[in-house]
């Protein structure tokens, strides 16, 4: 059973002001979340171009998470409102192309929500583990 235990690779784009600080807090409070989550710090969740999400999948991600400040709390006032629209459309398109909709997600996590950060990561890793490997948006050249 232990031989081929599948561990998904998760890429989490975290906004510098809230979610990344949330991740920090989770660490400071010794809250566990899987090491398979690779965090990429971005100045604002709005910085995440849809191409970044696709490129993460290309490079081997099994799940992609975009974390930003709660709507209304954006450091730049409105950035995450745009993220919300953009990602709603992108996720809908990915689903339209037959790509599992649970693989990609947006979460709002504030700097004070270390526990939420850890819980979200744990839950997301579990969801993606259940989904299995990303097969529909993979680039075979990047595998192995």
């Amino acid at each position: 059973m232990q031989v081929n235990e599948y561990k998904p690779l998760i890429v989490a784009f975290c906004c510098n002001w809230c979610s990344y600080a949330g991740a920090d807090l989770a660490g400071n409070n010794r809250l566990n979340y899987p090491a398979d989550v690779k965090i990429i710090r971005v100045p604002c969740s709005c910085r995440v171009n849809p191409a970044f999400v696709l490129r993460a999948y290309q490079r081997g991600a099994d799940g992609v998470l975009i974390c930003g400040c709660h709507p209304g709390d954006c450091h730049y006032t409105t950035g995450n409102y745009y993220t919300r629209r953009r990602m709603a459309l992108l996720f809908s398109m990915l689903s339209y192309l037959g790509i599992e909709k649970e693989r990609t997600r947006v979460e709002w996590i504030s700097a004070a929500e270390g526990a939420k950060f850890a819980a979200t990561m744990n839950e997301f890793v579990k969801t993606v583990t259940d989904l299995g490997k990303n097969r529909r948006l993979e680039d075979l050249r990047c595998k192995k």
Binding site: P71, G72, T78, Y81, Y82, R84, R85, R86, M87, A88, L89, F91, S92, S95, K101, R105, V106
Partner: peptide, 20 residues
């Protein structure tokens, strides 16, 4: 254009998919 606009009550991405 809708992508350079927003509304505070916009649908959340997780609720958007499949709710077209």
């Amino acid at each position: 254009a809708p992508l350079v606009d927003f509304d505070k009550e916009d649908v959340e991405p997780k609720n958007a998919v499949g709710k077209e």
